[in-house]
Simulated scan of single mutants.
Amino acid sequence: MARQSISFTEPNDEWLKSQVDNQEYSSKSELVNDLVRQARKQQAQVDWIRTKLEKAEKSGFTKDGKDEILSQSKALFND
Score class of each variant (00 low, 15 high):
residue 34 D to R: 14
residue 66 K to D: 01
residue 42 Q to V: 12
residue 34 D to I: 05
residue 39 A to K: 15
residue 39 A to W: 14
residue 49 I to H: 04
residue 22 N to F: 10
residue 24 E to D: 03
residue 46 V to I: 15
residue 42 Q to C: 11
residue 29 S to F: 02
residue 53 L to G: 03
residue 48 W to C: 08
residue 54 E to F: 05
residue 35 L to T: 00
residue 37 R to L: 09
residue 47 D to E: 12
residue 18 S to T: 05
residue 28 K to D: 07
residue 14 E to R: 09
residue 43 Q to R: 13
residue 65 G to K: 11
residue 29 S to K: 09
residue 59 S to M: 05
residue 40 R to W: 02
residue 22 N to D: 15
residue 38 Q to Y: 03
residue 26 S to D: 12
residue 27 S to E: 08
residue 38 Q to G: 03
residue 32 V to N: 04
residue 42 Q to P: 03
residue 56 A to C: 10
residue 44 A to Y: 14
residue 49 I to C: 07
residue 49 I to E: 05
residue 65 G to T: 07
residue 54 E to V: 05
residue 54 E to G: 00
residue 65 G to S: 08
residue 31 L to K: 04
residue 27 S to F: 08
residue 13 D to T: 05
residue 32 V to I: 13
residue 31 L to W: 00
residue 28 K to H: 15
residue 40 R to H: 01
residue 65 G to I: 01
residue 46 V to R: 14
residue 26 S to E: 10
residue 53 L to I: 09
residue 14 E to W: 02
residue 21 D to N: 11
residue 23 Q to W: 00
residue 64 D to E: 11
residue 66 K to E: 06
residue 47 D to L: 09
residue 44 A to F: 14
residue 36 V to Q: 06
residue 36 V to I: 15
residue 20 V to L: 00
residue 29 S to W: 01
residue 14 E to D: 01
residue 58 K to A: 06
residue 29 S to T: 15
residue 33 N to L: 12
residue 37 R to I: 02
residue 22 N to T: 10
residue 52 K to V: 08
residue 26 S to C: 10
residue 33 N to V: 13
residue 59 S to P: 01
residue 22 N to K: 14
residue 43 Q to E: 11
residue 63 K to F: 01
residue 20 V to Y: 01
residue 49 I to D: 04
residue 18 S to G: 07
residue 32 V to W: 02
residue 22 N to L: 12
residue 53 L to D: 06
residue 41 K to V: 09
residue 33 N to M: 11
residue 15 W to R: 12
residue 51 T to F: 10
residue 15 W to Q: 06
residue 18 S to H: 04
residue 24 E to R: 07
residue 43 Q to K: 13
residue 20 V to W: 00
residue 46 V to S: 12
residue 31 L to T: 01
residue 20 V to M: 03
residue 27 S to K: 10
residue 28 K to A: 15
residue 45 Q to G: 06
residue 59 S to Q: 02
residue 64 D to G: 02
